[in-house]
């Protein structure tokens, strides 16, 4: 009797294990085969020598890392961080008030306003970038309008500038700033604001002392959502920067598809991913601190 019971339990456990493997196995294997192993391969390539006919060869070396410290490449990295930072800052300056304003709309209009924010985002990325090639062209609508109004004598060079790259990135990723800020303002406990004003704080002061700190985690998520894809982008710098503005994404793309220097490309990609991972860690740390504080309050 006792032995049949244990046998039964063993069978149930085996069946549970079988079900577990059937549900989790295929997906986890797929992620491992097509994400983890590829990324580990890239990581290992960073320490190998460039092959004579593309690809990689032994010996193991640290030379690729030394090369990345060359001022030419450091300048590209700095340039990329600068452009992505300005883009993020502008997205924040436009996105925060927009998200805040949407939370103040009547419920019915809120959905419409949000759909209107994400609508362009679901359009092909190349097409959205192309629209700015049209707009900023020397014969394009902006220049034509300025000339017709007599504000300028000859067309300005708007396209193929660093400013054009920033505008293109801002256009592409602004919705990603608005959505998380909207969510965090919406979730905000209104009683905290009432408490602040009841205790004599001005609306202005209540915003800066209550609303802003409590929506900081959502705002940081928005900032990361804009910064991360901006930093790795190679389409906007190419199409709107005209090759004059090189970002780290262009450099990585060129090492893999043009120069065929995969080890150096791997090093650049590694630098980019480590930098971004650092940002995520910083966001998580700040969010933990703020959540801890408001939980205690």
């Amino acid at each position: 009797m006792a032995s049949t019971v244990t046998q039964g339990r063993g069978a149930i456990r085996r069946r549970a294990l079988g079900a577990r493997a059937a549900f989790l196995g295929p997906g986890l294997l797929y992620v491992t085969a097509f994400m983890t192993i590829p990324l580990l391969l890239v990581l290992s390539y960073a320490f190998l020598t460039r092959g004579r006919f593309g690809g990689v060869e032994l010996p193991v070396t640290l030379e690729n890392f030394a090369r990345a410290l060359d001022p030419i490449y450091l300048r590209v990295l700095w340039n990329s961080i600068l452009i992505s930072s300005i883009t993020t800052l502008l997205a924040l300056l436009i996105g925060y008030p927009t998200a805040y304003a949407i939370t103040r709309l009547p419920a019915r209009w809120r959905t419409v306003a949000l759909v209107l924010v994400v609508l362009p985002f679901w359009t092909n990325f190349l097409i959205r970038t192309y629209a700015w090639i049209v707009l900023l062209n020397s014969e394009g609508p902006i220049n034509k309008t300025l000339v017709n109004w007599g504000l300028i004598d000859s067309p300005l060079e708007l396209l193929y500038t660093r400013g054009a790259v920033i505008v293109g990135l801002l256009y592409a990723y602004l919705p990603l700033m608005i959505l998380p800020i909207y969510a965090s303002v919406e979730r905000l406990d209104r009683s905290l604001l009432e408490a602040a004003t009841n205790l004599g704080a001005s609306k202005f002061r209540a915003f800066f002392d209550v609303t802003l700190p409590l929506t900081l985690p959502g705002t940081m998520i928005g900032a990361i959502f804009v910064f991360v894809p901006s930093l790795g982008n190679f389409i906007v710098p190419e199409l709107l920067g005209g090759g004059k503005t090189v970002m780290i994404g262009n450099l990585i793309r060129d090492q893999f598809l043009k120069a065929r220097d995969w080890p150096f490309g791997a090093v650049l990609a590694l630098i980019m991913v480590l930098f971004l991972a650092g940002l995520f860690a910083a966001q998580a740390a700040v969010a933990r601190r703020i959540n801890g504080r408001s939980a205690r309050a």
Binding site: P38, L41, V42, G232
Partner: peptide, 18 residues
């Protein structure tokens, strides 16, 4: 869920290498 948030460029070069 990592493949959904990893930079597309990193996934792209990884898969090319694989």
């Amino acid at each position: 869920l990592t493949p959904a948030i990893i930079p597309d460029l990193a996934l792209a070069i990884g898969l090319l290498v694989l």
